[in-house]
Design a protein around this nucleic acid. Structure first.
Length: 415
DNA sequence: TAGGGCCTCGAACCCACAGCGCAGC
DNA sequence: CGGCTGCGCTGTGGGTTCGAGGCCC
């Protein structure tokens, strides 16, 4: 059980980082995820307060407890007395939000004792400048992050699930966040929240095509491989053979399993555009995060007791909250990936237009793959910290005290 | 068209050492 | 059964080396 912070091992873990597969205290969360632009993009959420090992995705307002999917099911799905509890989705965040920003993300923020007690202290001790990040922080009102959407009392309006910064409430059209490139944007806390697609999503494909930009798609290629259980080269073949539809169609199916209305989730990071560009007829989309989650959790829709609302939770992790299985499970998505066009998505009449877009998509995909292929995931931050300051000779580590030609700390030579 | 030389690119390797797991006592 | 000790393994980053592939003549 990850009750203690995986990094410092001292503080109680409060947040879960899926990318690092680690439970962290607030202090370490901020320190670790302010290290570089990539780590700032890690989406995090609260740790399940019941099992302390899985990322929470639901906040039970009645019990004032954050729960992972499994614990939520165990706690609320089995008994009639608890199944009526009001629950709120827990948005994911990235970057380094302040306490106030946490409050914006999570309306129940003040209800979390551990957070309330430690947040101000720990965040107050942070060495990271808040200013630059605050400047990049999207005000909650603009994010439309009525962040804690009611999971149980869905009023039947899509906005209940609109918690992203990409879909202004005033607009019925899904819009891809046009994130300007550059490091200044790297720390923008992004809210990942499941969104039920609106009919407009299907109606206005042209806009989607216009906005579509593969570079904006936050596809984690490493997870991509894990997701499909095939090598990237294979995926690329699929791309080149028109398999892109298969690829994403498959993921879409996973995201919408059990949803005959083909209304799935749209997540915040531009994959919406990708999905819709490739499958305009079936605009059930999911982000890379949700794609991954759906791989292990094909049935992620709340049905029945959830007012027949279909919810794709983008925050589910590889563990899926589905019983604590640590490893990825093969639910069949990868095999289905090879089966071509999903039957539930009829051929698109604008196929000619799609082919051009597809070519562009493939090209951008390759570029993105090239730039991200060698992205390395640091498993042990402590070892990285040591390596970062270790002196070297021609790139090789040298014994402490020996002559060195490169000192990462001072960029100087000892001779 | 075949073969050699040159260039570019990516993968593998190396190094020290803290930390971890494991076996033995 | 728990604690202690010793041993072996792991992983971390920058520079170097080497092989594969492409291009040109």
């Amino acid at each position: 059980m990850g009750y203690l912070c995986d990094f410092c091992g001292e503080q109680r873990s409060l947040v879960y980082c899926r990318s690092d597969a680690a439970s962290l205290c607030l202090s370490c969360d901020r320190n670790v995820h302010s290290a570089n632009a990539l780590s700032k993009r890690h989406s995090r959420t609260l740790v399940c307060e019941r099992c302390n090992s899985q990322p929470a995705f639901i906040r039970c307002a009645e019990e004032k407890i954050s729960l992972c999917q499994n614990c939520d099911w165990l706690g609320h799905g089995t008994t009639a007395s608890t199944s009526g509890h009001k629950r709120q989705t827990i948005n994911l965040y990235s970057g380094c939000p302040s306490a106030a920003e946490f409050s914006s993300i999570w309306s129940f923020f003040s209800d979390i004792p551990a957070m309330g007690e430690t947040c101000e202290q720990e965040l107050g001790l942070m060495s990271i400048s808040e200013n630059s990040e605050k400047s990049a922080w999207v005000p909650p009102e603009n994010q439309n992050a009525s962040s804690s959407a009611q999971a149980t009392n869905l009023p039947g309006k899509d906005k209940s699930w609109v918690g992203t910064s990409t879909m202004p409430e005033s607009s019925s059209e899904p819009r891809i966040m046009d994130q300007p490139p550059g490091p200044s944007n790297a720390c923008v806390p992004k809210l990942y929240c499941p969104v039920k697609t609106t009919p407009a999503l299907c109606e206005d494909d042209d806009n989607l095509y216009d906005d579509f930009n593969m570079d904006e798609v936050d596809l984690d290629l490493e997870n991509y491989e894990e997701l499909f259980g095939v090598a990237l080269s294979h995926s690329e073949e699929l791309f080149e053979n028109g398999g892109i539809d298969s690829l994403f169609g498959t993921k879409e199916m996973s995201a919408s399993a059990g949803d005959s209305n083909c209304q799935g989730a749209v997540a915040a990071e531009g994959s919406t555009g990708l999905i819709n560009a490739t499958q305009p007829a079936c605009s059930n989309a999911a982000s890379a995060d949700s794609m991954m989650s759906t791989k292990t959790e094909p049935i992620i829709c709340f049905t029945g007791r959830q007012s027949q609302s279909n919810i794709s939770f983008s925050g589910a992790t590889k563990d899926g909250g589905g019983g604590g299985g640590g490893d990825y499970q093969d639910c069949g998505a990868s095999s289905m990936l090879l089966m071509g066009e999903p039957p539930w998505c009829p051929p698109c009449p604008e196929s000619s237009m799609q082919s051009a877009n597809r070519s562009n998509a493939v090209m951008r995909y390759k570029e993105k793959k090239k730039t991200r292929k060698f992205e390395k995931r640091v498993r042990y931050a402590s070892r990285k910290a040591r390596a970062d300051v270790r002196r070297r000779v021609k790139g090789r580590f040298v014994k402490a005290g020996d002559i060195y030609d490169y000192d990462p700390m001072s960029q100087t030579r000892s001779y």
